[in-house]
């Protein structure tokens, strides 16, 4: 019993990282209609950025978490404003390859700037340590992550459902021309949404610094695949779906790692295949 609770907790904290990445991905897809391969790179850049602030500037964890992702937003701005904007109306393969080109560029830039090897971040003074849950220790930081995930979900929900900006965003995503004719500056809005999505991914990266233990130039690629799977299971473009999907995948792969260590990813894929057979549009996707 006690071990199950721990597996579930580990799964939840895993799932929250996937959610942070998947939320930005889903938001960008839902509004801009672009599947951004480079989103995993923003996660990676967020991690490296926060790490740099943390280690070389000697700042605290919170400062790192604030400044790192903010710096990545600049990269997101450049990608959208100067490149992605020109390919919204052209064929899908070009869009995807454009974002793929940025995966190559960012991965390589990270290798140039921080080196190709793994970096290990300094340990945390607070939020470090463990507390006993049902007689076994569980890292406090993981509990913190489990709290951050729903907080971000709540923030997104409030932003999209309760604010004027949210209404504009939803209007623009369902009908670009209509929004434009109503006086919405759609290009600027898209840039804004892309940068915000970038920030979500980079925030995930910043939070991952104390969690993953090692930073490597390929760290974005593993999580972007998981985020894709989550988006497929939850229904492309559905934030609710991404949240539920991330939790399910997180917990499922935690059980997988615990009980079938060499096939943990396989369980995830069986789940995906099953969901697709049962509901091709994903759990919360609109029927197409």
């Amino acid at each position: 019993m006690q071990s199950y609770v721990h597996v579930i907790l580990a799964g939840l904290s895993n799932g929250m990282f996937i959610w942070l990445v998947a939320s930005g991905l889903t938001l960008i897809f839902g509004v801009l209609g672009v599947l951004n391969f480079a989103h995993g790179s923003f996660y990676m850049l967020g991690a490296y950025g926060s790490f740099t602030v943390l280690k070389y500037l000697g700042a605290g964890f919170w400062t790192g978490l604030l400044l790192g992702p903010l710096a990545v937003c600049a990269a997101g701005f450049v990608v959208e404003r100067f490149f992605l904007r020109h390919v919204y109306r052209i064929a899908l393969p070009y869009q995807l390859l454009l974002t793929f080109a940025f995966v190559l560029i960012f991965d390589n830039l990270v290798k140039i700037v921080w080196g190709g090897g793994a970096l290990s971040p300094p340990s945390l003074s607070f939020l470090g340590g463990s507390i006993p849950i049902l007689g076994r220790n569980f890292p406090v930081y993981n509990l913190f992550i489990i709290a951050v995930g729903p907080a971000v979900a709540l923030l997104l929900w409030a932003l999209l459902e309760k604010t004027w900006y949210g209404r504009i965003i939803r209007a623009s995503s369902s009908d670009r021309e209509m929004a434009a004719s109503l006086g919405v500056r759609v290009p600027a809005l898209f840039t804004g949404v892309f940068v915000f999505g970038t920030w979500l991914g980079a925030l995930g990266g910043g939070l991952a610094v104390p969690y993953v233990g090692l930073l490597t130039p390929g760290m974005g690629e593993a999580i972007i695949i998981e985020a894709f799977i989550v988006a497929v299971i939850g229904g492309l473009g559905s934030l609710k779906g991404a949240f539920v999907g991330a939790l399910v995948i997180g917990v499922m792969s935690a059980f997988g790692t615990r009980f079938f260590p060499s096939f943990d990813m396989f369980l995830t894929f069986i789940l995906m295949g099953g969901v697709l057979l049962w509901r091709p549009q994903g759990l919360f996707g609109a029927a197409r």
């Binding site: 599947l35 990813m265 091709p280």
Partner: peptide, 29 residues
């Protein structure tokens, strides 16, 4: 499993299944 979808959905599904094969090969040491 994939051909009932098109465009971006198809791209994403094939990507995910491709990575499934990758991780299977990687893990089944």
């Amino acid at each position: 499993l994939c051909v009932r979808h098109t465009e971006i959905y198809f791209a994403m599904l094939t990507l995910a299944f491709g990575m499934m094969v990758f991780s299977l090969i990687w893990n089944a040491r």
